[in-house]
């Protein structure tokens, strides 16, 4: 049945036999395509090109020279470290939350779903301020932390916490609808056949959700590396210590080192492009498997 349906779809989408009623006039198709391309080019492609154009304005030599900056390298390392902690943390949390929401009924479930969405709803600046208010010197835990010489805000832990908060929903939001659509039947079958909880998870659930999971992780990673607002509030902007790459771009720009600023920005853009390529590869592989 399923394969017959997909065959039918394939025939329908082939232009030759498309029924006349389903065909849009050529001018309409061209206009729509033109508008879409123009919009994409002016709002997405142009800024991206300008980043690289500005970075290379004084030539490749100056571009490469601008990477010869220990603070810049430190910012890059900190950005990667932050992502390396935030992404796995949200991976575990996201799977656990999606599993709980999709497979079980429990009181407070809608509250949990709402809470998962919270970081999307509040402005990143607020997300940062929350941590200053909780862990800052005059925050709830401020005096205790200071007594025990633990630094959270204006130090690396604060940056990691703020990033985890902001990237919280990506994995869970990606998985919840997928797992809800898949239902519980396969898990029931596994349990009936004697699998324990972990076996069910690793052999049945995980293979089913792995593409959605990849996708969520990639989005989560992109945001973790690019986050500016929340991190800016908790960072304290100490060069060579608590500056992430996006913050470093701002600093360089404010110091009139435009080539350096755009070079660092181009590095971030490259990381984003790598992420997008990975994302497309995942989608392509997924489509091929299920095609």
């Amino acid at each position: 049945m399923a394969s017959a349906l997909s065959n039918l779809q394939r025939t329908v989408s082939a232009p030759v036999v498309r029924p006349r009623a389903l065909r849009d006039p050529l001018w309409l198709r061209l206009t729509l395509m033109g508008v879409a391309f123009l919009f994409l080019a002016s709002f997405l492609l142009l800024p991206l090109v300008s980043v690289f154009a500005e970075a290379l304005r004084r030539g490749v030599g100056a571009y490469l020279e601008s990477f010869n900056d220990p603070d810049g390298w430190h910012a890059l390392r900190l950005t990667l470290l932050t992502a390396a902690i935030a992404v796995p943390a949200n991976l575990v949390f996201g799977v656990a939350a999606a599993w709980a929401v999709a497979k079980f009924e429990f009181p407070g479930k809608s509250l949990l779903i709402t809470l998962i969405d919270l970081p999307f709803a509040v402005s990143p600046v607020i997300s940062g301020l929350i941590y200053v208010l909780v862990f800052g010197a005059h925050g709830w835990f401020g005096p205790w932390l200071s007594e025990h010489d633990i630094r959270i805000v204006f130090a690396v832990p604060g940056i990691v916490l703020a990033t985890i908060f902001v990237t919280f929903p990506f994995v869970a939001r990606e998985l919840i609808p997928l797992m809800q659509a898949q239902g519980k039947d396969e898990e029931y079958a596994a349990v009936t056949l004697g699998a324990n909880g972990w076996q069910t998870f690793f052999r049945v659930t995980l293979p089913n959700i792995k593409w959605g999971l990849f996708y969520g992780v990639i989005l989560c990673n992109a945001r973790a590396m690019g986050e500016f607002g929340a991190v800016s509030v908790v960072s304290g902007h100490i060069r060579g210590e608590t500056n992430t790459l996006p913050l470093h771009v701002e600093i360089l720009y404010n110091e009139y080192q435009f080539v350096g600023a755009f070079a660092a920005a181009s590095l971030l853009a490259l990381l984003a492009i790598v992420t997008l390529v990975l994302k497309s590869a995942v989608e392509w592989a997924h489509a091929r498997r299920h095609g």
Binding site: V132, H138, G139, R151, G236, I238, R239, E241, I251
Partner: peptide
């Protein structure tokens, strides 16, 4: 020596909030 720069009022606020 590590440096942190920003608007003076904002920087003072950060030190009050615990920037060491």
């Amino acid at each position: 020596i590590r440096q942190s720069h920003g608007g003076a009022g904002k920087q003072a606020r950060a030190v009050i909030d615990g920037l060491a």
